[in-house]
Nucleic acid binder design. Structure first.
Lengths: 331, 331
DNA sequence: CTGAAAGCGCTAACAA
DNA sequence: TTGTTAGCGCTTTCAG
């Protein structure tokens, strides 16, 4: 593996020149910089972050911890986060906490010595625990609202409002909310938004819960859903909605003719049939923004807001239609 | 922050003694170890991993590079890889090459100095490039078959064979293969397997290609697919199959009554409607095995095989049925 | 603008 | 069993 020394000997310059070409090129003559860079390219040289870390005290890594990589909500977020970090020449250590707070804590402790900061998505950790980590390392939260910690939140309120309004205009008057995990910030947030929107539109609201909040949980929830005599439902997220779609088909209920359904997150894009009407949540962007915020705080750039809220909007596709004359029931 | 030097001076011993107390305590007199540990505790000393890495050349990190995190094929693989690494107290640096070989190469070069080895999934890089990286760092490939490099391959042959047989028994005699990206190892492998299986069963085979190999590509391929007068299709992967399913529904073709469809990978589990008959490929396991192999080679444990092939099998769900009397056509 | 030299904190021969 | 002595690869004063 090539090092500064090798490169320096190769070019007949000092090691510091190599170093400067990468860290402070403005101190060098442009042609020198170019010469070094070209040689680096040719010999496959890249600065050793570990060595740099030892010398500067910063190691150019950040950690990203998510509850479940396999949940489709996260890959786009991870991807955007990684791409953003990459632009700043920062590497991402990825952790999957398996939705387990103990595991999450373990990962954080293990990552801590080799990262400059953390992005925690949908953290399950308690406020005080989080605050104690903040004392050690810069920290940015996604979809977890803890005062005092920089956080980026995907706010579904506007989208929920638009969805309820959309359904109202289609003639629906009774709506069900198929909720998700009781511990999650997103769930609390979403539930509150929908209660509010329904009150405002004078819609009857029934709430139930998909357990677990997965495709299967969605399928299973259909049984209960059909007993409530509602003509439409809003699901905790797209995955649950997708399950409901399948469950409905299994019950011979045609969506959207017999029943209207709205998802949340917009992560499945149009990959359901019929294509899912959903609340689009800019969740990939949340990953990018969180990383940017973390990077800023590492660079000492004073961050303006420490609570960044990302707006949402309704995307109408093909699972919502005019309310049926009679609500579908179990057959 | 206390360092070895500080601690050593404090205790009037050599720095190496401090070091040994933490890394090879069996070399020291127990009372010495205890003395050091107690002083460390008192002064709040903890070994600096970065410095240790620089000195030992091993930093307890590995890199995992995938072409696209958002492709549902990878999250389970990443998850399994991360879990396996975690067990060995090793951190995973994740890279997304965006299906771009230049980007892949960039990531590898950037990661190289801070990882002990690489796992490259579905690499797009040329053989010689790969071999040159191998010369620098241990390397394990997933679904890329390069002699001389340790690789783990998900072999779809058996599953393809079972699928063709299954369709044959259901009365199908003409089959289409909707292929994927021409550069990919999986595509070449799968295509060869299906050609072979069809020959063996005396089935007529038509091959086309979903471009791109995505849900949308699958949807789009339906138009061409219906012009070939086949009664069944095998898709490059589950994502393409999922698209075909939607495209068929859009064309008023009922699956499986009018048309039978088989996916590949088994990553969507049963989250399509109807639930997809598919070839199950143990791809998560591939991630775990690749990491294990890499870890073994880092520990100097001689690896037995350098070409690990994971078997596959057909999982019959609900998208295959008795062949229709007439092949469906465009309407 | 570039070179020389001194570490960053730790580990690992080699001695003693 | 413990100490001595070199570095690991990079950054960073300080000179030139």
């Amino acid at each position: 593996v090539p090092t500064v020394t090798l490169l320096a000997n190769e070019l007949g310059v000092a090691r510091s020149t190599i170093s400067r070409a990468f860290t402070r090129p403005e101190l060098l003559r442009p042609e020198t910089v170019e010469k070094v860079l070209k040689a680096a390219e040719r010999l496959g040289y890249a600065p050793n972050h570990t060595a740099r870390a030892l010398s500067t005290g910063r190691n150019g890594n950040i950690a990203l911890v998510v509850p479940d990589i396999a949940n489709p909500f996260f890959p786009p977020l991870i991807r955007a986060a990684q791409a953003r970090a990459d632009k700043a020449d920062v590497c991402v250590l990825l952790g999957d906490s398996a939705e387990d707070r103990r595991q999450e804590q373990r990962l954080i402790v293990r990552f801590a010595p080799q990262v400059d900061g953390f992005v925690l998505a949908a953290s399950r950790l308690g406020q005080s625990t989080l605050l104690s980590f903040l004392a050690r390392r810069p920290l940015v939260l996604i979809n977890r609202d803890v005062p005092g910690i920089h956080r980026v939140l995907t706010d579904s309120r506007r989208g929920v409002h638009e969805a309820v309004e959309h359904l109202y205009h289609l003639g629906h008057r009774s709506l069900a909310y198929v909720g998700g995990p009781s511990g999650s910030w997103a769930e609390r947030h979403r539930r509150a938004a929908i209660v509010h929107a329904c009150t405002r539109h004078g819609m009857t609201l029934t709430t139930l819960r998909a357990t677990p909040a997965t495709y299967e949980g969605g399928v299973d929830s259909v049984h209960e859903l059909l007993q409530h005599g509602v003509t439409a439902a809003l699901a905790y997220d797209d995955v649950v909605a997708h399950g409901i779609l399948a469950g409905m088909a299994g019950q011979g209920v045609t969506v959207p003719t017999d029943f209207s359904l709205v998802g949340c997150d917009d992560i499945l894009a149009a990959t359901t049939y019929p294509a899912l009407t959903t609340i689009s949540l800019r969740c990939a962007e949340a990953g990018e923004i969180a990383v940017s915020a973390l990077l800023d705080s590492l660079n000492g750039t004073k961050v303006t807001a420490d609570r960044q809220v990302l707006d949402s909007h309704l995307v109408v596709r093909s699972t919502t239609a005019v309310a049926p004359v009679r609500a579908p029931a179990l057959r």
